[in-house]
Design a protein around this nucleic acid. Structure first.
Length: 111
DNA sequence: TCTCTGACCATTT
DNA sequence: CAAATGGCCAGAG
């Protein structure tokens, strides 16, 4: 019995939980990997619940490498601190060398 | 049961 | 070039 497709949100957590150390990804990339390119939003919404799961949501940023969801973390620059702790440079809530630290599940997990 | 909101992205006007 | 809109899903009141 194949693992039935749980809620879309749960799939997101599965992917985010596999993000390697020192790497980041975007909402759209995850959505596309799940086969729902138009559901990039749902990924972000899922992260809203991620606080109840063991998910490194700080490794997920928007398409521009901007820390859109940093507001949901404790404090104001906690998300940035976490990323910098992994060797990711963040300036003005934006990830530097974004394409260099970008981790694409479509390539890494290759469905 | 209906309505509303919420960490996005791509396309169109 | 900038602003507006459509599309997707789930949870709470």
């Amino acid at each position: 019995m194949a693992a039935q497709p749980q809620h879309f949100y749960d799939k997101v957590y599965q992917v985010v939980a596999q993000i390697p150390f020192g790497r980041v990804t975007s909402y759209g990339a995850i959505a596309t990997y799940l086969g729902a390119a138009k559901s990039a939003r749902l990924v972000g919404y899922a992260m809203n619940n991620s606080h109840t799961k063991n998910v490194p949501a700080h490794r997920v940023v928007n398409r521009n490498g901007l820390l859109t969801g940093k507001h949901h973390f404790a404090g104001t620059n906690l998300m940035q601190q976490l990323l910098e702790s992994e060797g990711i440079e963040v300036v003005n809530n934006q990830v530097q060398n974004f394409e260099r630290v970008f981790w694409d599940p479509n390539v890494a997990l290759k469905p």
